[in-house]
């Protein structure tokens, strides 16, 4: 194909400007020694100090990390096992299972959140008749996160299962390995890239989620996104700018780390410069299209 000319380059640049300018303005104003969001009043780190003294932000950060780590760990194990189970299903059963698995991915998040909230509220009402107290809180939040994380893991592991040579495990067993030993020594390493990218996607989805958490966490538990929402609703404040800056840096660092790991360890990957998570998201996009991703 033809090379891009200067006009094309300018177009690319303008779109990136559109994507990044607002973020950079926020970052700049997080160091502004004035409450104003337009006038520069000198350099300060006060907003960061204020942020670190904000109890609700710190508590929410803790909740977010806890729910994301737990949900990701559970979803990674459960999703990998379920993917293997689904892969071995045939015909109708498989189609139905994969379709239901896709529901949380295709439904609007607000519907997923609202429907789960209904289930938890309904369960609470039923249990209350028997004198059992059940209300929305951390456990329901965790259940919701696991539920929307598992489909991502399954969708990332599936293509790896399709690429897997079925004779590999048989060969290992012929050579004397037990079924379980062959699975952990032969099959699992082959699936690993899919599992890792599924795990990364699940983790970022959990960390980033607002809508589903908002409806399933109840009044007492708050994730970071929920605290941000309540702050943002009230008014513009430089504290939020400081928080944005930190989150931007965290994401940037994560992406760089993933990328370094990738270019160091997996040099044979034909698309250099793209981390497994990036690869995962792209292959998810392909999975949606049913284009066999990276088929050999």
């Amino acid at each position: 194909m033809k090379k891009n000319g200067p006009i094309s380059r300018i177009y690319i640049f303008l779109i990136f400007l559109f994507l990044y300018a607002p973020i950079f303005v926020l970052i700049a104003f997080s160091f502004n020694d004035s409450r104003s969001n337009a006038v520069w009043g000198g350099f300060t780190l006060d907003w960061y100090l204020e942020l670190f003294q904000n109890r609700s932000v710190l508590e929410a950060l803790q909740t977010t990390l806890l729910v994301s780590v737990l949900a990701t760990a559970i979803a990674t194990v459960a999703g990998t096992a379920s993917a293997i189970g689904f892969y071995n299903l045939r015909g109708r059963a498989r189609t139905v299972c994969l379709s239901v698995n896709n529901i949380p991915l295709t439904n609007a998040d607000i519907i997923t959140g609202v429907s789960m909230m209904l289930l938890f509220v309904f369960t609470g009402q039923v249990l209350a008749q028997w004198g059992i107290d059940f209300s929305l809180g951390f456990p329901t939040l965790l259940i919701a996160h696991i539920t929307f994380d598992i489909p991502y893991v399954i969708l990332s592991v599936m293509p790896k299962l399709r690429q897997l040579d079925p004779h590999l495990a048989e060969a290992a067993q012929d050579l004397g390995a037990t079924g379980l030993y062959a699975f952990f020594k032969v099959v699992l390493p082959e699936l690993m890239p899919g599992i890792v990218s599924g795990m990364l996607i699940a983790f970022t989805m959990s960390i980033d989620d607002f809508l589903i958490s908002y409806f399933t966490a109840g009044g007492q538990t708050s994730t970071l996104s929920m605290v941000v929402y309540s702050m943002v609703r009230r008014r513009v404040s430089p504290e939020i700018n400081a928080l944005s800056t930190l989150m931007f840096l965290a994401v940037l660092l994560l992406l760089i780390l993933i990328n370094l790991r990738q270019s160091g360890g997996l040099r044979r990957s034909r698309r250099a410069g793209r981390g497994p998570a990036a690869e995962g998201i792209l292959s998810l996009a392909n999975e949606d299209l049913d284009v066999p991703a990276q088929d050999r």
Binding site: L19, Y20, I23, V25, D208, V228, N259
Partner: peptide, 18 residues
């Protein structure tokens, strides 16, 4: 591609707030 994905991973409330 990384540059396209980076804002996607930043909290969407903060993106809207910007």
């Amino acid at each position: 591609m990384l540059l396209i994905m980076l804002p996607m991973w930043m909290n969407f409330l903060l993106r809207t707030y910007s």
